[in-house]
Design a protein around this nucleic acid. Structure first.
Lengths: 157, 157
DNA sequence: ATTGACACTGATAATCATTTTCACTTTCAC
DNA sequence: GTGAAAGTGAAAATGATTATCAGTGTCAAT
């Protein structure tokens, strides 16, 4: 994690930007998360450390983290973006529990290969894709009668 | 298409709602489209027939069409929703050209099967999924040098 | 350490798609 | 035909994100 912070610093320096107190705080808070987090949720976490940092600065710093290749922005169709660490690991897709909001990552190269096959068939130059599986995770499956809608999302908020 | 209109009427009647002039006009205009269309774009089309129908009514009617199972709402990550006919045909996924905005539908049951396999592995109850391939369609691939960004989206607007 | 140029910050206002509100109008079952 | 209930349009509200702008902080060069 200090490694990621260093990479962020490097990016800022290289781009002629400044490593301010706010940016370091925000980046540190972001790297300290282990799941997908919204700007708002990150804001609340950062506010715990410094009450006067604005939500706007969170957005600006998340944008910088994306530019630095350290964060990915995801849209899971809930109206607001979630941010995840851009791990050096391979590309992955997501499974989203509509009960509790939990997000699980997975990768499947057979699916990837089939996607490329489809693209080829349409003479389509595939640049990137988005695959999301929605449903109930193991826990929510157990709690609901086939997901009768009694559970509300409480995940990454 | 008159068939779809009839189904819409039925849905309204069954739900104790009214088949107003506006709703019929909007539904007719929607069924007359053959691609994915935004509320705004549908509004412009309807305005051609009746200048005083409001955009709000378009949104409300599209919601009714969804409830009637006659329309699907799609979010292709461009900030606004696109609506497509809920054809009785099988489920399909989408390929979106980032050059011209063209949307192509495709289906691939091998991919579907693999998705279910993944879900099973995580004890996840799969309810629905979203698969979108982004890149350049045949035409845009030809027009750009590997998509240098010279073409702007002009699709369903 | 001082400085100065320029990037940064926070508050507030602006966007943009979509939804609510509300006073008035239309539909349709009787 | 009539009236209760639903529908309509205009304008205001929403909610996430972005832009504006005046004041502040950073850092490289002195």
């Amino acid at each position: 994690m200090p490694d990621k912070l260093r990479r962020f610093q490097q990016h800022l320096t290289r781009a002629g930007l400044k490593a301010t107190r706010q940016r370091q705080l925000i980046a540190r808070a972001f790297f300290a998360t282990n799941t997908h987090i919204s700007a708002e949720a990150l804001y609340r976490r950062v506010s715990g450390r410094d009450r006067r940092i604005g939500l706007v600065t969170i957005y600006r710093t998340l944008k910088l983290l994306k530019e630095a290749g350290l964060a990915h922005e995801r849209q899971f169709g809930e109206g607001r973006a979630l941010f995840e660490h851009a791990s050096s690991e391979r590309h992955h897709d997501h499974m989203i529990c509509t009960g509790c909001g939990k997000i699980t990552e997975f990768e499947n190269c057979k699916i990837e290969a089939l996607q490329e096959q489809v693209a080829r068939r349409f003479a389509f130059t595939l640049r990137y894709h988005k695959l999301e599986l929605y449903g109930f995770c193991r826990e929510c499956r157990a709690n609901t009668n086939r997901g009768a809608g009694r559970v509300r999302a409480v995940g990454a908020r």
